[in-house]
């Protein structure tokens, strides 16, 4: 993902791939998730026994599988950007479709997890752990949905050959957002599902 305006310059590119605006948006999102993670960690410090006990009721296998899906989805989108940069729009569109499938898989797995918890009568007021678990993962869930909307738009435009070398801004911006959704889950999974 080369910055197209700086390809002739030696040394590092001045700006990250994609639109600068998306990077400010990503930083704002990371800040929000960072605050959420810290709140969870310090909330746990005041209720260690409760958090350790309740963590055992989570489906760690589903969490790990969802990590695989998000990372694989991220890889698919990176491969899509690379293909488009080599003027291979059709290949790029296929990689984007694979990324969308991974995101959809994540939503389905998470949906089953939520259904199991709600079916067991668990809700936001069950206890502090579940208040954090449900709000934190749902906040992330919404970001996966937004990321998928962006990917569908990118897929549609890539199929039409809208992007290519010299016109990477749109696809690089959307891809960066999708990678952010993956990046956040990479911290969330060990913190909420494993660390005790």
């Amino acid at each position: 993902m080369k910055n197209t305006t700086n390809t002739a310059l030696p040394g590092p590119a001045v700006a990250p791939p994609g639109d600068l605006a998306i990077w400010f948006f990503i930083l704002a999102e990371l800040l929000a998730f960072g605050v959420f993670f810290a709140a969870y960690a310090f909330g746990r410090a005041n209720n260690v026994e409760l958090f350790n006990e309740m963590q055992q009721t989570l489906d760690r296998q589903a969490g790990a599988f969802n990590t695989v899906l998000l990372i694989t989805g991220s890889w698919c989108v990176a491969r899509a950007v690379e293909a488009v940069e080599r003027s291979r729009s059709a290949t790029g569109a296929r990689w984007l479709a694979a990324g969308i499938l991974c995101g959809g898989g994540f939503l389905v797995v998470k949906g089953f997890e939520y259904a199991a918890k709600f079916g067991a009568g668990i809700n936001l007021s069950t206890n502090t752990f579940y208040m954090f678990y449900l709000s934190l993962t749902f906040f992330h869930f919404m970001h996966v949905i937004l990321g998928m909307v962006i990917l569908v738009a990118l897929w549609w435009k890539t199929r039409q050959g809208a992007y290519g070398p010299g016109n990477m801004n749109g696809i690089e911006s959307g891809a960066a957002y999708w990678h952010m959704v993956d990046l956040v889950w990479i911290v969330l999974f060990p913190l909420v599902y494993v660390m005790r």
Binding site: M1, P12, A15, P16, P17, A78, V81, H179, M180
Partner: peptide, 10 residues
């Protein structure tokens, strides 16, 4: 690598 920041300014 995925976000492509490796070659970007520190």
């Amino acid at each position: 690598d995925f976000m492509g920041l490796r070659g970007v300014k520190f």
